[in-house]
């Protein structure tokens, strides 16, 4: 609780020390940081920009490599190639459902696991933590897991896409860690007021843990969105196909190594494998980019514990 007591930390400091130069220094520092981050953003944005520009270039002109600061001609042919097939919308639907339900279940389960483990007095806390941590390092492997999913009769069901990866130990620990950093008086005073564990979790802890919840929701969401091994192994029918599996098929279809064996290109239109690859990146990343700023809302502005506590 030392952190909670600011006066003790700063009592000895001279409040007027370097007062003027500090503000000026800070201003300059702030500007430098902004400029630095802008440069950094450009470097970080480039690959995605490259993908976008390449994906809308005319396929023939995109050949020959080099960097893409602007599109070379405009063509949406590769987009139509990927998006025209009715199957992609089924795949999108499945992936969105998986991401929504999967993330919701994962976050709730993780919170329910993390909270008790963040209560320091809890008996067996270390044992349970250790037990969960152990699974981060050791696992049974694909085949025993497949046999398990099969014995639970989950094969070729929607649940097979959600349950096997429902809780990630890593995310659970991140959340627990965050909950641990919250002042324990909150929990204690609520308990004294007669609140039950579930009420404390949902009414007091979770609102305070919003930043961390948003972070792990992002992690769960992204991994649900990008996962494809579970779909590959646990489902058979194309009605349950997810986006990544669909996209992988599109990709392999156009870049089939044995050129003699494909009929692609019998039509006069030109198909560029590299471009299809770029389109695939774009169609799978853009939805994430649309959602992410909404999640950021939960952790761009600092929170004040006192305000919630009061």
């Amino acid at each position: 609780m030392t952190v909670m007591n600011p006066t003790r930390l700063f009592r000895k400091k001279d409040p007027y020390q370097n007062h003027i130069s500090r503000t000026r220094g800070e201003k300059i520092g702030g500007v430098i940081i902004c400029i630095f981050l802008f440069a950094l953003s450009l470097i970080m944005i480039y690959p995605f920009w490259h993908v976008l520009m390449y994906s809308i270039s005319e396929p023939e002109r995109a050949l020959g490599g080099g960097l893409f600061f602007y599109p070379r001609g405009i063509s949406f042919f590769s987009y139509s190639l990927v998006l025209r097939n009715a199957q992609i919308w089924i795949a999108y639907k499945n992936t969105i459902l998986k991401t929504l339900f999967g993330t919701l279940i994962s976050v709730v389960l993780s919170a329910m696991t993390a909270y008790p483990l963040s209560v320091k007095r809890l008996r067996g806390r270390n044992f349970f933590s250790m037990m969960i941590f152990f699974t981060m390092l050791f696992g049974g492997g694909t085949i025993p897991t497949y046999l398990l999913v099969k014995s639970l009769s989950l094969i070729d069901t929607f649940w097979a896409l959600i349950l096997p990866g429902a809780v990630s130990a890593y995310n659970m620990f991140i959340l627990r860690n965050y909950m641990q950093s919250l002042p324990s008086e909150l929990e204690e005073s609520a308990r004294i007021d007669g609140a039950m564990a579930f009420t404390i979790l949902f009414r007091i802890i979770l609102p305070l843990a919003a930043p961390s919840l948003a972070a792990i929701a992002m992690f769960y969401g992204v991994s649900n969105w990008n996962s494809y091994m579970d779909c590959l192994l646990y489902t058979n029918s194309t009605s349950l196909q997810t986006l990544q599996l669909y996209l992988r098929q599109v990709l392999l279809q156009t870049s089939s190594a044995n050129a003699a064996m494909t009929v692609t290109g019998e039509t006069s239109e030109y198909v560029s494998d590299t471009q299809v690859q770029m389109v695939i990146v774009a169609v799978s990343v853009i939805p994430i980019l649309i959602v992410y700023p909404y999640l950021q809302r939960f952790y761009t502005k600092g929170i004040t514990v006192g305000a919630v506590k009061g």
Binding site: V3, P6, Y178, S181, S212, Y299, K301, G302, I303, V305
Partner: peptide, 11 residues
């Protein structure tokens, strides 16, 4: 960033 956001602004 989530952890930084969680720091009590009063501090």
């Amino acid at each position: 960033l989530a952890a930084i956001t969680g720091i009590d602004q009063q501090l």
